[in-house]
Design a protein around this nucleic acid. Sequence first.
DNA 1: AAGTGGTCTAGACCACTTT
DNA 2: AAGTGGTCTAGACCACTTC
Lengths: 258, 258
Amino acid sequence: MNDSRPQAADEAPGDVGMTDIPRFVPLYVQIKRLLTQGLQAGEWKPGEPIPSEVELARRYGVSQGTVRKAIDELAAENLVVRRQGRGTFVATHHEARTQFRFLRLLPDDEGGEELGSRIVECRRLRAPVEVARVLGLRAGEAVVCIRRILDLQGEPTVLDEIWLPGARFRGLTAERLAAYSGPLYGLFEREFGTRMIRAAERLKAIAADEVTAELLGIEPGSPLLQVERVSSTYDDVAVEFRRGLYVTRRHHYFNELS
Amino acid sequence: MNDSRPQAADEAPGDVGMTDIPRFVPLYVQIKRLLTQGLQAGEWKPGEPIPSEVELARRYGVSQGTVRKAIDELAAENLVVRRQGRGTFVATHHEARTQFRFLRLLPDDEGGEELGSRIVECRRLRAPVEVARVLGLRAGEAVVCIRRILDLQGEPTVLDEIWLPGARFRGLTAERLAAYSGPLYGLFEREFGTRMIRAAERLKAIAADEVTAELLGIEPGSPLLQVERVSSTYDDVAVEFRRGLYVTRRHHYFNELS
DNA sequence: AAGTGGTCTAGACCACTTT
DNA sequence: AAGTGGTCTAGACCACTTC
């Protein structure tokens, strides 16, 4: 990096194509990419510290301020966590702090947060077309399908159907799931080296069918909040499709807009 | 500001109360507060530029880098918009860009974004207890209640019930609303000096009652997405309570998690 | 005391927009 | 050419944590 300062791309002035090719890539963006690659490659594991700013500045031959700006953006994207006086750590799903970033369901009346999970089934099968499309697989490729129920405040509240690429989650079985307690994303991160970074959700209100109603202990036809989620890891590679059905009688999905 | 560097609060070392009193307030936070106050006071109007970084640095007697950090945070909170080479502008709801930050409803199949609005009613009345509580009013104080229908892709899709503090929105009438086209928050900003900054939403799935079903042209009992929103202006003062009922047959509420 | 992230400065130069 | 925000540097000092 010592001799490579950000430079203009070999591009005639004026836009050529429809995709806007950035003419200059700032140094801190380059550093940020290097760090992201290190995270992706597992050079530093979740929960562990990354090298100090001074060390990284020396290693890459840039000033500390430049490294700092790169890390600031990684922290803003929740890829790392800064802790003054201690260091900068790779984010992990094994923290109470991270839990409610992805499960945005709260009790209407401020109550406890008891959360229980029951695996209904876990089987491997060929990907249905819709799932294959979302996960970027060929139709018929192997996928894992998990169905589980979450109990909040002691009541069955969420019925999740989770689809994962079979190749990436080789060895994921019902037994393995049953033996594990804690957030599923924690398991994925620790056992399969797959960290969920971002997710896009699509919400709808639907009526409960009979099977679902039975599982959730509600009347068929009751309104349910359907939450479809596509989660992705580094580089926005989709690695999970999830359809959740939420009972919102005593709970609600919360969202902050700004 | 020339002689006031950030200093330790006159506080014995060690925490005294339960509220954590910050011992040091960084300079850039102080600058940020001054700028926020200027925005709140209307010193610079929505859409207008604020003074340049150099000018502000001179005015407050700090370095440009410090002003820069303050503005960076304001930009991250969507209070201002930076434009390279031009300046920094006060954010406004009169922009296509800002529209879908608050109405997070999209067609399932990528389609146009035709959006129509019809006012059903607009009347002034005494605040019901629930509304008074949310808006921080005394029970019985004057409020404005608006009901309107949004048509997306030519179909009635949203029934909104909007509650506003009567004092702040004096002179808001059905005629005034009918004469205006565009986002409601644009009207509030321009005509009533009230800019919505942040909002917290609570979502539930419910069944349509008869009146609602009639207005939205659906069957009674159909599932609806209920979106309750509390919007606030500078300093997190709640100034709007809104209950929206969304038909999610061909649309969905989208959300990005990270 | 040493090491970490956090703040602040002063100055240089670059990219972009407007005049 | 002038003015704006954007990047980068080098260095100082502060706050916090650990040893």
